[in-house]
Design a protein around this nucleic acid. Sequence first.
DNA 1: AGTGAACAGGAGATACTCTCCGCTTAATCT
DNA 2: AGATTAAGCGGAGAGTATCTCCTGTTCACT
Lengths: 242, 242
Amino acid sequence: MTKSTSGARAPRADAQRNRDHILDVAEQYFSAHGATGSLDAIAKQAGVGAGTLYRHFPTREALLAALLAARDDELVARRDQLRSGSLNPADALGGWLDAIKAWAGAFDGLPGPLRAATMTDSSPLSLTCEGFITTTEEFLHAAQRDGSARSDVRARDLFLSALAASWIEGAALADDGSAAALSDLTRHGWASTPSRTSDTTDTTDTTDTTDTTDTTDTTDTTDTTDHRITGHDGERTRGKST
Amino acid sequence: MTKSTSGARAPRADAQRNRDHILDVAEQYFSAHGATGSLDAIAKQAGVGAGTLYRHFPTREALLAALLAARDDELVARRDQLRSGSLNPADALGGWLDAIKAWAGAFDGLPGPLRAATMTDSSPLSLTCEGFITTTEEFLHAAQRDGSARSDVRARDLFLSALAASWIEGAALADDGSAAALSDLTRHGWASTPSRTSDTTDTTDTTDTTDTTDTTDTTDTTDTTDHRITGHDGERTRGKST
DNA sequence: AGTGAACAGGAGATACTCTCCGCTTAATCT
DNA sequence: AGATTAAGCGGAGAGTATCTCCTGTTCACT
């Protein structure tokens, strides 16, 4: 009867209490000092040893993931609300991306780990991110079927752009609405052109998928300098080889 | 006559030599380990004491600024090239933003300090950033006069969005072209709608500044900053105000 | 040369992350 | 209850990083 169905034994009462208390303290601490605040300080403030903290949460990301788990519920609720609401698909997608932006801004410095988690796939945060990307995809597809979102936009990129908007806001230094501006910019970016005019001119719509640069860089690589800045060579993955 | 016109005395030969050598080593080291690499390690690798490094470059940002100074020239050259080229204003602005993105991606982790510098105004990097924002403004105004950029877009936000695109690419983990996608998204964001269609429906053109943001939810964008996410559900009750 | 100011170097103070291991305590057994 | 045991606790300590003094050295100018 002790173990019953689940394979794992129930956690000891004091362990559970410690865990919860650490979570409480960490919530406050990260809110005040950002997601890069000292973990030892959290342990001390919680009145436990460093070992206790690290046993419960082996890495900073594990702690963040546990903290975010509570907020996940809110985001899920928001998703359901947007789903069932009478909004058009474009507004639903916009609302969802705003919700992600707010979620990622829960603590200063949180967008960084989230971005890493989105890309590495080996972090406690990864699953959460992937789930939200899937939801983004759902909203995006609806908007694309509706014709209100461009068809060459990817959900993952929209998710990352929401993270980026949150990152811009970062560090409590966003004096003005730059993050809002970036969101706005992005929204105009994924939205289809309002009226019928589908083919029209040339500049923006048809050939651009490859790279915006190519249109401009007629002369660059040749004279100015070496390949440093000018290059931008398509997508050589990164600037650092070593 | 020793001092002549300038107030400062010429630097001692050994000091200058050390400075240059530190810069060389730092360039390599940051390229290999990112802009957050250990400064002491750079000092050791350069064969100087930590004190020497910190005297020349009191902060990490000072070192980065000195390193970036060389690249500034390239960016200025690019600017002139784009200016004098026969490009339309939209492509010139696009090319300029791509150049900024590449510049900010010189080292892993560089976008962070750059963003901070853009906002704090008290960093060695601030002046450089402000200068580039001014240039962005120039290109943007040309595109706006030309009618190829929306009139409610601000240069600072475009600069930040280029930083954000670089940030997305970050950490050598950008497996796919997400950064390019974000640039692309942004470009569609600031561009005016291709054809004539001025009045039409309502979504983008005329009253656009306001509508995108608050159609869905008056919730976040503006005051997310200090209320954290929890406030979210307070407003959610009414949510449907749209 | 000789002198003074600028400079170099590195030990050390402080802070943070993470691990290891002996002690304590909750939960279970007889 | 008392005994047993393993889960859990705490904190010392190793490793690493930032940044600051302070002492000895070396350049530059006379």
